[in-house]
Amino acid sequence: MVGDMRLFVGWCGFPWCMFVGSWLFEGLEVVRYVRDATPVVPPEPIVELNNVSGDTLRQLLVRLRQLVSLVTVVAWARRVGLRVFVHASAMPDPVNDFVRAALAGGADGVLVDDFVSISSDLIEVVHVGEKVSDGSVNYVVVGPDVQVQQPVRAYGVILRDVVINKEWLLRIRDKLRLTYGSKEFLAALDNSLLRREIIEELQGVVDGIVVMEIPSVVSLDFDGHKALNVFRCVNCYIDYETEGEMRKCPRCGNRLRPVIRRWDKLTVIEPKVLRLKANDEIKYMRLGAPKVINY
């Protein structure tokens, strides 16, 4: 099957999802698309393609679901004030795609250990374990029932087997800080725990989270419709969908930020710029979804 297709977010476990993966569109005939590190509200479109086969679209769906899910969880945790690291074991090949996704969500770095390691000059790589070189920032991974005989001094402690209970977490946090003299207390979360309500529950209890698995928090779909241009007013918190161009918000007169629009040339953001763009976008996003108006 060959034709014109619109790819869009069908569902997201958060009020908005962050998009990443525009480099996967290279070589395709792109009409409109969302730039990386841009929040999108379901069911807004993320790309419109011409003359694309169904097989190509299905391959895009598989790759993009993982990337968009990862960047969305990272961005949401950053939005509520948590530090975020991604464990190297969560990153399948091609690793650089997932490093870019982490950057596009504003991640603080990637954690490696004695068993899983990656090499990247795009994102900070932090070793987890007791044996680190002098002057290095080190994190140790412990369970809630740890019995420490000769504790090492650690910059941060990562708690595995987390129980989502505020009183329990505070008790474990205080115990581990006393034992290790650590400055940071991070919770290691697998796919089952990477949900909005849990991330929000951890606010004020932990300093950050470690993503241990690629989450599954979005669904993507495609149809034969054309994508509308989408412009966002960060003052009114409204997304306007329109066939034409809009420069100012009809309600308040402020300048609109484009979400999806026609581009003469596919512009892939350099990986080292992604985190800067993510932080800029996240500061404008709220904890609920913007209202969508067909204008």
Results as ranks from 00 to 15, higher is better:
236 C>V: 10
249 C>T: 10
232 R>V: 08
214 I>G: 01
204 G>N: 09
223 D>A: 11
224 G>I: 11
213 E>V: 01
218 V>P: 04
276 L>R: 13
258 P>G: 11
246 M>C: 04
270 E>W: 01
267 T>Q: 13
207 D>W: 04
215 P>G: 02
269 I>V: 14
208 G>E: 07
258 P>R: 12
214 I>D: 03
260 I>T: 12
249 C>W: 10
240 Y>H: 03
246 M>P: 01
241 E>G: 03
268 V>T: 12
223 D>C: 08
263 W>N: 14
211 V>A: 04
227 A>G: 10
210 V>W: 00
276 L>S: 08
259 V>E: 02
231 F>A: 05
232 R>A: 02
232 R>P: 06
268 V>F: 02
278 A>Q: 01
240 Y>P: 02
250 P>S: 07
204 G>W: 08
199 I>T: 07
237 Y>C: 02
253 G>Q: 10
272 K>D: 10
244 G>N: 11
219 S>Q: 12
235 N>K: 15
236 C>D: 15
212 M>Y: 01
268 V>D: 08
226 K>F: 12
213 E>Q: 14
209 I>Q: 04
216 S>D: 15
227 A>I: 10
234 V>P: 01
229 N>T: 09
220 L>M: 08
226 K>D: 11
259 V>P: 02
203 Q>Y: 07
265 K>G: 08
251 R>K: 15
242 T>A: 13
254 N>I: 04
203 Q>S: 13
202 L>H: 07
257 R>V: 13
238 I>A: 07
